[in-house]
């Protein structure tokens, strides 16, 4: 008798569970498209790189780089901390305008740039014949400074739905800034 009661109870539980799962399955359609961002909802950044000296022949390529976290140790200079790597800056130019909407290596698909705080924005150069990802092959030739404070790298803050402009960097190949940890 008790077994029969338990079985009945078990069957009821089973039916309720199935109905609950069916209800979830009916009402929810899972993944849905993210809304297309309008022109007023886009976050990102742009700026200008100015070159104060002639390009040395040894420079083979240069990029604008944006790291999210401060470069305090050699381990911070990694691809996972690198959130923006521009296309190559044409060799020999005096000025270069860039934007997070431009095609870049990172992210590979241009679009809204995630809002947040970015601790290190710079122009980095390489002298190797081929593009290298080794830390020692990167040399910082110019840094973004905020509010005229040249004693430390400037922080870029991108609020929600805001496009930040004037992230400007001056490069003097003859007077490079202090190198982040890990460069020998």
């Amino acid at each position: 008798m008790r077994i029969k009661t338990n079985i009945k109870y078990f069957k009821c539980q089973s039916a309720i569970l199935i109905l609950m799962l069916f209800a979830v399955a009916c009402n929810d359609h899972g993944i849905e498209p993210k809304p297309e961002p309008s022109a007023f909802e886009i976050s990102g950044f742009s700026g200008k790189v100015s070159f104060a000296s002639e390009w040395p022949d040894s420079v083979k390529r240069a990029f604008v780089v944006v790291f999210q976290n401060p470069l305090l140790t050699p381990g911070d200079f990694t691809i996972l901390n690198l959130k923006f790597l521009s296309r190559e800056i044409p060799l020999g130019v005096q000025t270069y305008n860039y934007s997070s909407f431009d095609s870049a290596f990172i992210p590979s698909v241009p679009g809204p740039f995630p809002p947040g705080t970015y601790a290190y924005i710079a122009v980095a150069q390489q002298s190797t014949e081929e593009l290298s990802l080794a830390r020692n092959d990167w040399f910082v030739s110019g840094i973004y400074y905020a509010n005229g404070d040249t004693t430390q790298p400037g922080t870029m803050v991108i609020p929600d739905i805001t496009f930040v402009e004037n992230i400007n960097i001056t490069v003097d190949f003859n007077d490079p800034p202090p190198q982040p940890p890990g460069y020998n």
Partner: peptide
């Protein structure tokens, strides 16, 4: 790295 755009979208499976 922007390779899989919106790749963070995932849900339980029913």
């Amino acid at each position: 790295l922007g390779i899989v755009v919106d790749g963070d979208l995932r849900v339980p499976v029913y």
